[in-house]
Design a protein around this nucleic acid. Structure first.
Lengths: 371, 371
DNA sequence: ACTGCTAATGCACACGTGTGCAAACATCCA
DNA sequence: TGGATGTTTGCACACGTGTGCATTAGCAGT
């Protein structure tokens, strides 16, 4: 009958330095009931009388009780946690995707572990390993190359997984995925350039994202073919890259300009916006007017695309939607429902980096079906 | 003596559908020892003989054992987890900061929970609450306003916390922080404009980040004062905003142009790069040449600043460093060491959006110390 | 008063891991 | 051979929460 006047004061004193948090056992002791009753009362179990429940909930509040999610997870075998692996956190394409994911996850009561893989197979495996150790309920992987070992790993641990715009060349039936139609997107961009009157249209891609590069190249080729054109070999410039970082992409675009000019193109379709921006910068440096002398189109429609001068014509990926949908599919899987794969439709956003070619541009001999 | 030929096969069968993961108890059973021995062997305890340890580690590998971090956390009272609260995930300023944080965290064996608060007090509290429930070892808060209730909450739960570029007007001695010197940064930018010959220099700020706005305004005023100038009231345009999102900032910049032109300034210093970019876009629309007719300087040096045309003169915040350092301070706190607060020094990055004013610009009467 | 029924509560165990302490065993020395 | 010392192992408990089952209390009906 000396110290603690109220449970509240007791909690304060207990939490003075670095001591334990208030547990249901503590509440039980104060309330004079078993920890079982407290547990049930806090979870609104119908087994507990209205009166007891109210009393205990009030007490929990006064004592500053915060449930221990760790202990709950151990018991229920659910952590209400997901792992999100991205290639690069600073990737402007991913920012909105991650935003969509976190938004949906949080409204479903899930917390998100974020980890970067830097497009490096070894780190990818380490990240998955960590997620597994932490017993996440599900995993999302964005824009990753999927090396064989990685896939094998994911396969073994049997955690529901959804891939977003996977760069793996082969799909695996065990994994689910959400992606944007790259072939269609590329078609839209190239058809736009064709409609403006361009005939010599270049392509710039990078080896750091092999799948989207291949698919977009395919769309590019298909659009040209439909117009009765076959691209010259030198129109297609493939840049070597490893890291898949924005800086690297800009550099690729910048370095590609000379080769494209040498190839004599009047328009360029870039694998993504960052490369297009690199290209624009190089044009600015060399005094080449865009779009008057050279038309440039990108892919992704990142924030920057609309902020740059001239505003970039590009293919819009519904990035926020992509993230939301991926998380939604994962939620379905977590609820033991069947998960469906989705292909989202990109749209063309015409801005000011594309225009009809200069009349002089047909100094270049038209390269129609040389086949 | 019927089914499982090897521990490996046994594990495979066990993990067939949705059954339990392999635990140390399982390994113990197979190895014919107690779970205690397995626990010690896997942790390289000196209590275990070399031979037993090797045997058990080998067995663990074969059985596909992955330690349960949840159970470990419950026992050791450490989750090796931190919570990172940001205002907006898509904020280009934060991308590099988050990258630095995750990098250091991961190399220290910590996983990162990411959550967005949208600059909303209610959500901020909810996020902190969740972090607490999950028993994170530490918390990082980036660019947040710190409402009283929020602070009180953080204060109660006594989890080591580090603030990054906090927007709270008052600092609390309990919390640690890392920040960039806003006053100095603003000085650098404005002194640069002064050195170019500008006398009528405008400022654009937003109410969504009150502290950095106030500090940068202070630096702006100080630089002008040192040059013997007092800014006219209409040179300082304050935009109302709530969300603290990039889109919102761009809009603020865009809408500020007219007011600045009316005020007759020849150069503008913006609270951040996104606002400067909005301003540039507005200039582009109105056919105002930057930097010939109007000089524009920003703050932050986000990726976009160097990619835009014209490349933006701005004040560089060491963003990656900021993230790394904040995480480092948090690590110190986690290791029971004293945490030190840090003020980082920004630097001026002169690019191409600033130039001397047109000769005609002094049609505007010089407004020297009207005081 | 006894039975049968419902409502409310507690016991005991589970989840998977770490660790203090005791016990068993081996080794060495006198 | 006995005792001292050192090495290796296991028992039992702890961490905080959830839940099946038994137990108790309360109440109505005969």
């Amino acid at each position: 009958m000396n110290s603690s006047h109220s449970p509240l004061a007791a909690a304060r004193v207990a939490g003075a330095k670095r001591s334990r948090e208030v547990s249901i056992a503590d509440i039980a002791r104060v309330a004079g009931v078993s920890h079982t009753t407290v547990s049930r009362a806090l979870r609104d179990s119908p087994l507990i009388s209205e009166e007891t429940r109210k009393r205990i909930q009030q007490l929990a509040l006064e004592m500053g009780y915060t449930p221990n999610a760790i202990a709950q997870s151990l018991q229920t075998r659910r952590t209400n946690t997901i792992g999100l692996a991205v290639t690069s956190i600073a990737d402007p394409f991913l920012s909105e995707v991650v935003r969509g994911i976190e938004e949906v996850a949080r409204s479903a009561g899930l917390s998100v572990f974020l980890s970067a893989t830097h497009n490096d197979p070894e780190q990818e495996i380490a990240v998955i390993e960590t997620f597994h150790r932490r017993r996440v309920d599900g995993i999302l992987v964005a824009s990753s190359r999927m090396t064989g070992e990685y896939k094998q790993r994911l396969d073994q641990i049997r955690i529901p997984t959804v891939l977003i715009n996977s760069q793996a060349e082969s799909q695996y039936e065990l994994l689910h995925w959400v992606a944007v139609d790259d072939v269609l997107g590329a078609r839209l961009a190239v058809e736009h350039l064709l409609a403006l009157g361009h005939r010599a249209i270049g392509y710039v891609g990078t080896s750091s994202r092999p799948r989207s590069c291949r698919q977009r190249l395919e769309g590019y080729r298909a659009a040209l073919a439909d117009a009765g054109l076959t691209p010259r070999e030198e129109w297609v410039t493939m840049m070597r890259a490893e890291e898949a970082s924005p800086q690297e992409d800009v550099l690729c675009g910048r370095r590609a300009l000379q080769r494209l000019l040498d190839a004599g193109v009047t328009a360029v379709f870039c694998q993504n916006d960052m490369m297009a921006i690199g290209l624009l910068m190089a044009c600015y440096r060399r005094g080449i007017a865009v779009p008057r002398e050279l038309s440039v189109a990108g892919f992704d429609d990142i924030e920057m695309a609309s902020c740059i001068i001239p505003p970039l014509t590009t293919v819009r990926q519904p990035r926020l939607e992509l993230g939301r949908l991926a998380m939604q599919v994962l939620l379905d899987l977590l609820h033991e429902q069947e998960g469906h794969n989705h292909v989202l439709t990109p749209t063309l956003v015409v801005r000011e980096s594309t225009a009809p070619p200069l009349a002089s541009s047909d100094a270049l001999p038209p390269s129609t079906t040389t086949e």
